[in-house]
Amino acid sequence: MIEVTDLYKEFKGIPVLKGVSTTFEKGVTNMIIGQSGSGKTVFLKCLVGLHVPDSGIICFDGRKQKELDIKEQRLLRQEIGMVFQGGALYDSLTVEENIMFPLKMFAEQSFSERMDRVNFVLKRVNLENANKKFPAELSGGMQKRVSIARAIVMNPKYLFCDEPNSGLDPNTATVIDNLIKEITEEYQIITVINSHDMNSVMEIGEKIILLKDGVKEWEGSNKEIFITENEAVVNFVYSSNLFKKVREAYLKETK
């Protein structure tokens, strides 16, 4: 379990996170939603250690992030997989080399063992024939899948995804969503996803956190998000007519 307690972060005197507390459970797809500038990315970057919080506690299965020495922090980071918004694949490396990279750095395995693992995760993300391609030769959806494959190649305990659907067509976005959900359940990973995409939120958001101006405004599931009267959720999630109508229809049906 990841426990976040009273997280504060500011940049040049401007507070971005103002005391966020929550928990993330194993095998559950946790989603963080909120408007641009609400602090989602900063929150995610604090979780993975790219930003150091000004105060507050982040605890990974009993290990407090800020109490770990450099070696322990590195070990913790080896348990973390991250899917970046733009994929963050290494341009000069092939798909196979990109995925093998964490194994080369940290796993004491022979080349054939590493290759087997790479082929296994590539198969898992349905990209069996892309081994020798370079990231520039792949579509956006394929790049995201390679990024997911790289994130899970070390069997992480924690998976963080920053807007995994941005720039993808709805079909591909659904494929990526389902893949993340399947992987989360299959490997019992703690998954935290930053998203703007309401389709994803409704589809796979087992636990949803709404951030507004750096404050946790609401927390619930994708079932509860339909019935909540929370103003911030209603304004953010149901800002489009389509979603308003979907909600009205859902409420009518459940009454």
Binding site: G49, Q73, L75, R77, F84, D91, F106
Partner: peptide, 17 residues
Amino acid sequence: GTMRVTEQIDALEVMGI
């Protein structure tokens, strides 16, 4: 610089490198 703006350096850091 390109690695920085495309988050490739962040990816290295997250891996513990």
